[in-house]
Design a protein around this nucleic acid. Structure first.
Lengths: 208, 208
DNA sequence: TTCATAATATTGACAACGTCAATATTGACT
DNA sequence: AGTCAATATTGACGTTGTCAATATTATGAA
C-alpha cells in the first residue's frame, strides 16, 4: 500500500503480512509465529516489532488485509448484478470461508485479532451496512425488520460454515429438493428471484 | 465418574478438569496451560501427563465434560415440556454460550479440541439427532426436510452467539416487534406454538 | 506379610515462543 | 559532512509443552 520502498528491507510490513498468510494457509493460525514470519520474510526475529507491536497486531493486520480483500470481491461482484444481490454478498463470504478455512477462522478469533482496531472496525461496519442496504432494496422483505433479516442471514451463513469447518456438520443435500444444503438453508430466509432494478446502497449501524 | 478415589492425589483426572474450567472462565482458553492447571490442582507440572497425553487431550476432556453437562441440561428441560421443545433445545445451548462465553468458545476450537474423539463424537451425534427428533414431532415442519431445518436452526443460533461473542453484533431488539433479536431470529424459522403432545425421540445422522 | 509390578507423581531438561533492552545500520534532511 | 529518526540485529529472559529419568505409592500374587 504505502510506497515506502526503501530502508533496509524495503516494505517489510507488507512482506510480513504475505509471509503470515502463507504460514496461515499451511499451518493454521498457531503456525503464524512472529519468528516464523520473520524468517520467511528474511529478517531477524525482532524485526517485525518495528511494524507490529506484538503478535496480535500482526494478525490484526492480516485480518484487515483479508477483510479488504473480501470487500473488494463483494464490490466487484455487485457491479454487474441486478438480482439476488444480498445473496451474492453472503455467497462471497461463504465461498471465501471454504476456499481459505484457516483465514476465515482467524478473522473471528478474538484472542488473535483486535476487532475494535481503528481500521478494522469500520470495515466490519461497512460490510454489515452494505448487506442491510441490499436487503432494503429487495421487495421480498417488505414487512420485515431489515436488521433482523440481516443478522439472521449472516448468522446462519457464518454458523453453517463455522460448524462445517469444526466438523460438526458434513456436506450434504436437501432430501426434498436435492439442492446442496447451503442453497436450501439460504432459501429458507432469502428466496431467489428473477427480475430486479439496480444500484447504490445506504448506511446502517450494526446491532444484533 | 470413575470411583478410583485413591493413589497419590486421588482422582486427579477430575481435579484437573475442574481446575481447567476455573482457568478457562477467568483467563480464556489461552490461560489453560498444563502448568497452570497442574499448579491449581496442587501437583507438579508433569503430573497431568499420566491422565492426558497432551494439552489437546486435556481440553478435549473439558469439552466432553461440558457437552455432557449441556446434554443433561437439555434432557432435564425436556421432561416436563410438551410444546416448543426444539426451541428449548436451542435456547439451552444459546443460554450456555452467554453464561459461559469462554467455555462455549472452547467447544468449537478445532485446534484445542479433538472433535473426532471416540467419546466426544457420539455426544455431538446424539445432540444433533435429538434436535432432529424434536423437529420431526412438530407439525409445522410438515413439507420440509428435517435435516435442513435442523442445520438451519443450529447454524443460525451458533452463528448468532458466535458473532455476538466476537463483537461483530451488539445486543439489540427487532425494530418492528420490539422482541429481543434472538427471539426475532428464531421466529423466522421456528414460529412458537401453543398446544402439542409429548415424548420419545429417534435417531438421525448429522449431515449438512 | 512380603514383594514384584504397574500406576502415578516428581524433577530436570530442552527447544520454541513472545517480548524486551541494547546496539548497530541505514536513509533523509540540513 | 553530519545529525537524527527509522529500521534491523543480537542477545537475553521468563513461559510454555513435552520428554526422559527417577521416585513413590497402590495392587495383587506369593
Amino acid at each position: 500500500m504505502s510506497r515506502e520502498k526503501s530502508f533496509h528491507h524495503g516494505n517489510l510490513r507488507h512482506a510480513l503480512i504475505e509471509a503470515a498468510l502463507d504460514l496461515l494457509d499451511t499451518d493454521g493460525s498457531a503456525g503464524v509465529t512472529i519468528r516464523a514470519v520473520a524468517a520467511k520474510a528474511g529478517v531477524s526475529h525482532a524485526a517485525p516489532a518495528n511494524h507490529f507491536k506484538d503478535r496480535k497486531a500482526l494478525l490484526t493486520g492480516v485480518a484487515k488485509s483479508e477483510f479488504k480483500h473480501i470487500w473488494r470481491q463483494i464490490e466487484s461482484g455487485l457491479v454487474s448484478r441486478t438480482t439476488n444481490r444480498a445473496r451474492m454478498f453472503l455467497d462471497t463470504i461463504a465461498n471465501y470461508a471454504v476456499a481459505h478455512p484457516n483465514r476465515y477462522d482467524l478473522l473471528w478469533r478474538t484472542d488473535l485479532v483486535d476487532h475494535s482496531d481503528a481500521d478494522l472496525a469500520p470495515l466490519l461496519d461497512n460490510l454489515y451496512a452494505s448487506l442491510c442496504a441490499e436487503l432494503a432494496r429487495e421487495p421480498s422483505h417488505a414487512g420485515r425488520d431489515i436488521d433482523t433479516v440481516a443478522v439472521a442471514l449472516w448468522s446462519m451463513m457464518h454458523g453453517y460454515v463455522s460448524l462445517r469447518l469444526s466438523g460438526m456438520f458434513q456436506p450434504a443435500e436437501d432430501r426434498l429438493t436435492s439442492e446442496p444444503r447451503y442453497e436450501a438453508l439460504m432459501s429458507l430466509l432469502l428466496p431467489p428471484v428473477k427480475p430486479a432494478p439496480s444500484r447504490t446502497p445506504k448506511r446502517s449501524t450494526r446491532k444484533a
